[in-house]
Nucleic acid binder design. Structure first.
Lengths: 104, 104
DNA sequence: ACTTACCGTAAGTACAAACTTACCATTAGT
DNA sequence: ACTAATGGTAAGTTTGTACTTACGGTAAGT
């Protein structure tokens, strides 16, 4: 399973997107990530594991707390996947358009 | 449900990513999209609906054939979502780093 | 008009994965 | 040493969703 595949799978879940977005402004401990969420803390832990394996977040310990923060690797993987569609899709679109249109 | 949310949900499924990638090089009719896939054609139709509602693909008819092609809207939505993480996550990372490091 | 090719939708099933509770491990503080 | 705080994992349940088959509907060809 490629890097971007894991990332797309991970962000395919709404709850994981919410968790991911919580880390946008600053790193957070698990307790704080779980705050306000309607699911149990173990469920949050399981989501964090998926996000971590997709390299969308990274962890570092601080005493008894596990601090999670955004990891750029996963984001980069998704970006380049999407970019790989960009030009080729545009070319495909053009060639399709040129069948009905005529010049320029 | 926002535009990017639908797109992430759509590309969260491996089969839909395969279908999406099949359209990378050129637009295709449903029959050709289903070729080589191990699922039934109606299943493909259902996936196409999800991708279409996420604005990741668009459709245009050609006789009795329904031709699908990449739609840039969905890709753009995902890109800007990811980009919105870019700077802020970087800033968060920096501020975290500055606590342990000291200058520059 | 009839047949063939193409494809979407409905309804029901089966399975993956998102949950829960229960438990255990580690660290910090007293 | 004991307690409290933090959080990961195991096992089992439940639910969402990716499938299937069956059907209907439209367009093109004869």
């Amino acid at each position: 399973m490629s890097s971007s595949e894991k990332a797309f799978n991970a962000l395919g879940d709404p709850t994981r997107r919410i968790i991911f977005e919580k880390l946008r402004t600053s790193p957070l401990a698990v307790v704080h990530i779980a705050e306000g969420l309607s699911i149990s803390r173990p469920a949050v832990s399981q989501h964090l594991k998926v996000l971590r394996e997709a390299k969308l977040i990274s962890i570092h310990q601080q005493g008894t707390k596990n601090i999670y923060q955004i990891d750029q690797q996963g984001i980069l993987a998704m970006r380049s996947y999407l970019d790989s569609f960009w030009d080729t899709a545009l070319a495909a679109f053009k060639s399709a358009a040129e069948k009905t249109e005529d010049h320029e």
